[in-house]
């Protein structure tokens, strides 16, 4: 009778152990999936923020002091065309990047911009 009781006790303990393991595993998996889901969201938010900052910086390229990557001898064709030499065209590349506060996440954008300047003199 005592042996039977012992077996029942062992079985109950094993059952409890298995259940504990199962619950722990489920908790871990749910935590991981939450983390994974959150990291994706964070990366998306960071990319959006990086793009916003990148677009805000493009107008600053109008500053003539920023050196161009390439100076075109002829401006690209357009409907409202200009005589050769009356317009200066430069190609600039703007590179910006953003890191998350914990530096685990990173987003970077680049733009190629054409800067057109009228060739004129001060009076």
């Amino acid at each position: 009778m005592a042996a039977v009781k012992g077996i029942v006790l062992v079985m109950a303990l094993i059952f409890l152990l298995v259940m504990t393991l199962l619950v722990s595993a489920m908790l871990l998996v749910s935590q991981l999936s939450h983390k994974a889901a959150f990291s994706g969201q964070q990366q998306l938010q960071l990319s959006h923020q990086a793009l916003q900052q990148h677009m805000q910086q493009i107008p600053q390229l109008a500053d003539a002091a920023i050196a161009p990557n390439e100076l075109l001898t002829t401006c690209p064709a357009e409907y409202a065309a200009w005589s050769v030499g009356s317009l200066t065209c430069e190609v600039l590349q703007l590179d910006t990047d953003v890191y998350s506060d914990n530096r685990y996440f990173y987003a970077s954008y680049s733009s190629v911009v054409l800067r057109k300047t009228v060739v004129e003199n001060e009076e």
Binding site: L51, L61, A62, D97, A107, S110, S111
Partner: peptide, 27 residues
């Protein structure tokens, strides 16, 4: 202006330097 055969706009100095974004890409 290319919108119509006779369309015209004011040519303002404030438009220049004019910036035309040719491409934006994620690096």
């Amino acid at each position: 202006n290319a919108d119509c055969a006779d369309c015209v706009d004011e040519l303002s100095q404030t438009e220049f330097p004019q910036l035309i974004r040719l491409a934006t890409f994620q690096t």
